Simulated assay, not measured.
Amino acid sequence: MSLLRHYVPILLLHLCILSGEPAAAKVPALFVFGDSTVDTGNNNFISTVVRSDFVPYGRDLHLGKSKSDDTDHPTPTGRFSNGRLAVDFISETFGLPPLMPPYLDPNADISNLAAGAGYDNSTSDLFSVLTIWEELDYFKEYAARLRGFQGEEKAAQTLAEALYVVSMGTNDFLENYYAVPQGRASQYPTAAAYGRDYLLGAPGSFVRALHALGARKLDLNGLPPMGCLPMESALVGLR
Rank of each mutant, 00 (worst) to 15 (best):
Y119C: 03
V55M: 15
G169T: 00
V55H: 14
G222M: 07
L4N: 07
W133N: 06
L229W: 03
S19A: 00
L210T: 10
A143T: 12
Q150K: 15
S186K: 13
N221R: 09
K67C: 08
A114M: 08
G204L: 10
T93R: 01
I132M: 09
D69A: 13
D120C: 09
D39F: 07
P56L: 03
P9Y: 04
P181H: 08
D172E: 03
D125G: 07
L85Y: 01
S124C: 05
P203E: 02
S66A: 14
P56M: 05
R196N: 14
D53V: 09
G237N: 07
L18M: 10
L223E: 03
L220M: 12
G227R: 06
C228K: 13
L200S: 14
G222D: 03
G41P: 07
V49Q: 13
M226S: 08
D70N: 15
F149D: 13
P76M: 07
A202Q: 12
N176E: 00
G222P: 00
N176H: 05
A202I: 08
L13I: 06
Y194G: 02
G58R: 10
G227Y: 04
D35W: 00
F206E: 04
T48W: 05
G118P: 02
P106F: 05
L99E: 04
P102K: 06
N112W: 05
L200A: 14
A117D: 02
G148L: 09
P225N: 04
A202V: 11
E134R: 11
R145L: 10
L113W: 04
V180F: 09
T75A: 06
R5M: 00
T71K: 15
Y103R: 11
K217A: 11
A144T: 13
P74F: 08
S91R: 00
T77W: 00
P203Y: 06
